[in-house]
Amino acid sequence: MNDPWKVKGRYHVTRQIPFIDLKTASTALQASLQARMNAVLDHGQYIMGPEVAELENSLQALTGSPYCITVSSGTEALLISLMALGVGPGDEVITTPFTFIATVEVIVLLGATPVFVDVEADTCNIDATLVEAAITERTRAIIPVSLYGQVPDMTEINQLAHTHGLKVIEDAAQSFGATYQGKKSCNVSGIACTSFFPSKPLGCFGDGGAIFTDDEVIANACREIRVHGQSQRYVHTRVGVGGRMDTLQCAVVLAKLERFEWEVGQRLLLGESYNARMDEIGIMRVQQKPDRDSVFAQYTIFVDQRDRVQAELESRGIPTAVHYPVPLNEQPAYRHLGDSKRTPVSATIAKRVMSLPMSPDLALEDQAYIVDKLGEVVARFSEPLEV
C-alpha cells in the first residue's frame, strides 16, 4: 500500500497532540491562579487556611451535597470514608476489579476484604445486576466506581444497599461534574469521594481530594480523622491520619472553578463529537447511558492488536494510554483475594481498552486528525503493516 505519510520507513510527525492539555487551562487562568496563590502567601496559613472552608462551601453548592470535607488526595478520601464507617478486619467491601488500584488498596490497608464484582462490557462500570449475589453477612459497604467520567447504576445499587443495611461510597475520582438522573456525581449516594489530581476533570497542582456526604455524623467523623483523629486541639477521640488538603491546593481549585462550567460543557461536546466520529468509522467505544452524561475523564475505545495500534498512532504524534491493562484481582499483590475467572468481562476488556487524547482544550481539528489516523491504522490491519 502506498502510504503518503510514510517516508523511508519513518512517519513525518506533522503535529504532537498532548494526551491531556493542562497548560492551556493554566494559561487562561494565570491571573486568577496568581491572585489566589498570592493571597495564601500573604496570610501564611498554609494548613487549614480560609481557602479550605471556602472551597468546601463552593463544592457543596456545586454538587448539592450537604457536607464536603477536603482531604489530601482521592485515595485518602476513600480511606477516611471507610475509617468513618468503622470498616476493618473481618469486613467485606464490594467493588469492581476494573479501576485504579486506590479503590481496593484502601480496603486492604484497613484489614478488610475486597469482593470483586464484574463490569458491564459496554460501559466498563460495575454491573449492578451482579452485586446482590456478592453480599454476605460480612458485607459492610459497596464502592462503585464512576469510571471514565460516567456514573454507574446508582439507583439500583442504593436500593440494594438500603435493603441489606449497607453503605455506598461512590468513587467519583473521574466523574466530578457529571450528572446522573438529574443529580450531580458526588451527590448520588450517602458518601462520595473525588480526586483533584492534576489530570482529573477538576484538578489542582498536586494531590488533593474531597469527601461528600449527606450524614452529619459521618461528616464530623471524617473531619476528625483527617486531622489525626482530633475533636479539639490535642484531644484525639479516634484513630486518624494526616489527611488535610493544603491551603495552596485549595486556592488552585478555587481559581479553576471559574472555568469549570465551561470545561464540563467542552468535555460533553468533544465527547459527543468523538462518539459520532467513532460510529462513522466503525470503532467500538465505551457507551453512555441515556439517563446520565459523562465528563469524559478519559475517552476510551476498544481495539484489537492494541500494542500495534498504539505504536502506529504514536508515530503520527498521537499519544494513547491504557486505563487499565490488568484487573485488580490479577495484580500480584491482590490476586489471592479474588478469582479472576469470576470476572471474565474485566479480563477481556483490559486487553482491548485504549484511551485517546481528551481535555477541554482539545481542538476540533486535532480531534479530526486523531480519528482520521485511527481509522487509517485500523483499516491497514486487513493487510500486513509495513515496518
Rank of each mutant, 00 (worst) to 15 (best):
R10S: 11
W262K: 12
A121T: 02
S146H: 01
C250W: 04
M154T: 02
V188H: 07
I370K: 02
E216D: 07
G243V: 00
I225F: 03
K373P: 03
M278E: 09
G271P: 09
I47H: 07
P50D: 15
R335Q: 12
V252Y: 07
R233W: 10
A102R: 05
S32H: 15
G208K: 07
P201V: 12
V378Y: 07
Q174W: 11
A102Q: 07
L356R: 02
R277G: 06
E258N: 14
A379C: 08
Y324I: 01
V387D: 14
A350E: 01
I169R: 00
K373W: 04
I17C: 05
V241K: 04
I47F: 06
G149Y: 00
A350F: 01
G190E: 12
N187I: 00
H336P: 04
V295W: 09
C222Y: 03
E263W: 10
V322M: 03
E376C: 10
G190N: 12
A379V: 05
A172V: 04
W5K: 12
P344A: 14
C222D: 08
T136R: 01
R306Q: 14
V87S: 01
S189E: 05
K373V: 11
Y234W: 14
I142Y: 04
S58K: 11
E76W: 02
A161P: 05
Q16G: 03
L160Y: 04
E170L: 15
A333P: 09
G338A: 03
T163D: 11
V239F: 05
A161D: 08
G190T: 12
Y46S: 05
K183Y: 09
D207W: 09
F212K: 01
T103Q: 06
R140W: 14
P198Q: 15
S340A: 14
P384W: 15
L55E: 07
G88E: 11
G64L: 11
L33C: 11
D372R: 11
V145I: 05
S294M: 03
M83P: 10
Y324G: 00
T95Y: 00
E56G: 00
E280N: 10
C250S: 10
T194A: 03
M278R: 05
A128D: 13
V117N: 01
V106F: 03
